[in-house]
């Protein structure tokens, strides 16, 4: 574990440890905002600011990575909800339909694009729990902590997510 400078308002956090986890945090932020890069950068900056200013305080009750993921997810959720509310209001006023940034880039292999499309179509919590357990190697208990739900609920999302993903991939057929 790196032994770097500690944060004034978050003395249990080592800045070098944060730097080491930065890539994983950005990747998780991408998942939380459904692949929008600019949004993910904003969310990560907000999370770091909250950590530096001590608004989000790490007390060592879980691993730093799990805690960081939950901070990022909460911030992305609140941002997302605010943005969605604004867009819904706009849509009501001017029949405006928001156009999302493309989630799947053309440079991506077809099979990956297919899996990402299927993942994206899942309910948010199922998508998140599969990302945490399959891609980031968290246990279901740790995923439950990140999502702020009970272990039983996380397990239910995990099982349903797997079944739904299998079904969607089967419906989509083999990659071209």
């Amino acid at each position: 574990m790196p032994d770097g400078p500690r944060l004034r308002h978050n003395p249990l956090i080592d800045q070098r440890e944060l730097e080491r986890l930065h890539e994983q945090c950005f990747s998780w932020a991408l998942t939380c905002v459904r692949g929008r890069r600019a949004e993910a950068e904003d969310v990560l900056q907000m999370a770091y600011l909250a950590i530096v200013e001590g608004e989000a305080r790490f007390e060592g009750r879980s691993s730093l990575r799990t805690w960081l993921f939950s901070v990022i997810r909460n911030l992305a959720g609140s941002r997302w909800r605010r943005a969605r509310r604004s867009l819904e209001s706009l849509a009501r006023i001017a029949a405006f339909a928001p156009h999302a940034e493309p989630f799947v880039t053309p440079a991506m292999p077809t099979e990956s694009a297919r899996v990402l499309d299927a993942l994206r179509a899942l309910p948010k919590r199922q998508h998140e729990v599969l990302d945490l357990v399959f891609y980031r190697d968290l246990s279901i208990a740790e995923a439950a902590e990140v999502l702020g739900v009970s272990l039983g609920t996380a397990r239910m999302h995990y099982e349903r997510g797997k079944a739904a993903l299998r079904e969607r991939l089967a419906d989509m057929g083999p990659a071209a």
Partner: peptide, 12 residues
Amino acid sequence: VRDGLAARDRAL
């Protein structure tokens, strides 16, 4: 899932 998300992370 791992391959898909890794490809996304490489692209972004």
